[in-house]
Design a protein around this nucleic acid. Sequence first.
DNA 1: TCACCTTTTAACTTATTTGTTATATATTTA
DNA 2: TAAATATATAACAAATAAGTTAAAAGGTGA
Lengths: 104, 104
Amino acid sequence: MSSPDKVFEALASTTRRKILAYLSEGPLTAGAVAERFDVSQPAISKHLSVLEAADLIWKKRDGQFVNYGMKADNLGGTLAKFMQEVCPPSRALKAERRAENDND
Amino acid sequence: MSSPDKVFEALASTTRRKILAYLSEGPLTAGAVAERFDVSQPAISKHLSVLEAADLIWKKRDGQFVNYGMKADNLGGTLAKFMQEVCPPSRALKAERRAENDND
DNA sequence: TCACCTTTTAACTTATTTGTTATATATTTA
DNA sequence: TAAATATATAACAAATAAGTTAAAAGGTGA
């Protein structure tokens, strides 16, 4: 399981959000990800491990290559839960539901 | 208008996410927010200005107090847009819609 | 005006993040 | 085995973030 803290920390970097956007179109090797950015390969490697620590991506070695791909569940789940906690409209819905249940 | 960059940066801090959760229940003065945390009041003041720079909260002086409150639109909008860009299910829906439009 | 209260800003310290280059580890292929 | 390729790790520098205390700014009311 992964903490929301790690997810939000991972999303704090523009580069990492872009990596997620690339991976959302399909898996890529570490090198293919790095090609798409203007920073060094080791820098991208570190970004990938931050994303992995947040459980936002998976990793699978394939010979000399390492493939990375999105794990959308955790991203969607964490953001959805946060919105529920914090966004007034969903808070209102929750309060409504509570009220209904109290009437039972 | 506020950049997604600033929003995600603002959300990267657990303390700031908790501040948003408090404010989602209603406006509070700077002091009332600070009371709820174990850090100094100036530290909270800085967190509030990060949230304000991200356009996630509003601020209104009332005499010697300063009230802060949530601006849910920008938070919801930024997160929804990001999910649309990155989450495979919504990406699939977008592709579908494109395909439909191509048939017109 | 003066004392007081609330909040922000300044100056500073420490920890973390992000990047770099050089090196190590895995793997394939000649 | 040796050379080449792909990726990760180590060691370091620079920038940023987050906290602290002290002081300033804004506002109230005797």
